[in-house]
Amino acid sequence: MFNPQLNNKGNLNHLLSIEGLSKEKIIQILDTAESFLKIGERDVKKVPILRGKTVCNVFFENSTRTRTTFEIAAKRLSADVINLNVATSSQSKGETVLDTINNLIAMNADIFVVRHSSSGAAHFIASHVKPNIHIINAGDGNHSHPTQGLLDAFTIRKYKTNFNKLKVAIVGDILNSRVARSNIHALNILGVPEIRVIAPKTLLPDEIEKLGVHVFYDIDKGLSDVDVIMMLRIQNERMDGIMLPSQEEYFKTYGLNQVRLDLAKKDAIVMHPGPMNRGVEIDSAVADSEQSVILPQVTFGIAVRMAVMAILAGQHS
C-alpha cells in the first residue's frame, strides 16, 4: 500500500501524515505559513486565494477548537466553509464514512478537513476520492495530526531558528497521542538531533524508540538541558484507572512546575497543543510564564492551516 498523500509528480495532494513528507516539503509549508502570518495582523484579514472554493469541515469526532482554526484559516483565504458535525448526525443513522464523504463530494466541495476517532480514517477516505478532491487530516485516532505537527515545528522555528542543535522533550500521554507521533516525525525529518519522550511505561507505546526518540521515565533527568518542552494533555478518562492512579500522583511525578522547568535551558520554551489541564500536567504559573508559547501556537496554527490549504489547492506553490 502506498501513501496516497503525494501525487505521481511528488506534489502534495492530501495532507494525511507527517511521515512520508520530505524536509523540503515541510519547509515549503512553513515558509508559506510565514507569508500568511501577516494577514492575520491586518485590518482586512482576507486574501482571495481560495475564492470560489468550498472547504468542508467533516468532524466525525467533536472538537470545537481545531474546527474553528480550520474555519478561520479557510475564511481568511476567501473559501466558502461548511461545518459538518457528523458525530451527531449521519453516523448515528448508520451511514458509512465513505457514503458521508461521497454525499459531500456530490455537493461539489473541494477540500475536506476530516477528523475521525479511528486511526487511518483520513488515509482511507483519501484513497477513495477523485484526484481533484483534497483531504486534510485534522486528527485520526492515535495516528496523526499533521497540521499540529507542522504548527509546532513552525513555533519552534520562530523561537529557536536552527533545528540542528536542539534537544526537545515531549512529556505525557505518548500512547494515546497523535500529536506526539506527528511531532516525533516532524522533528526527525527537520533534523532535530535529540528527541526525548518522558512518561510512565503505561503511557508509552510499544517500541517507541524505533521512531527515533530517547525514552525517559524520570522527568527531572529528561528535562535536563532541553531547549523545547512539549507538554501533552492527559485525558481525564485515563485517570483513576489502570494507566494512572490519580491526577495528584501524576502532577507530582510528571507535572511541569517551575522547579522542573529550571532544569531545562534558561531560554527553553514551553508548548502545549491545548486544551490544558492546569494543575494536572502543567502548573498554572508555568503555563502563564514568559517561557510559555502556548497562545502563539494557536495564532501560528491558523497561518499553517492557511498554507496547507493554499498549497493543496495548487494556488500557492
Partner: peptide
C-alpha cells in the same frame, strides 16, 4: 501486533 508498526499507525497493539 504490538510493536513499531502499531505505534506508527496509532492502532492498539496485541502483545
Amino acid at each position: 501486533n504490538a510493536g513499531e508498526i502499531s505505534t506508527r499507525l496509532g492502532l492498539k497493539g496485541i502483545q
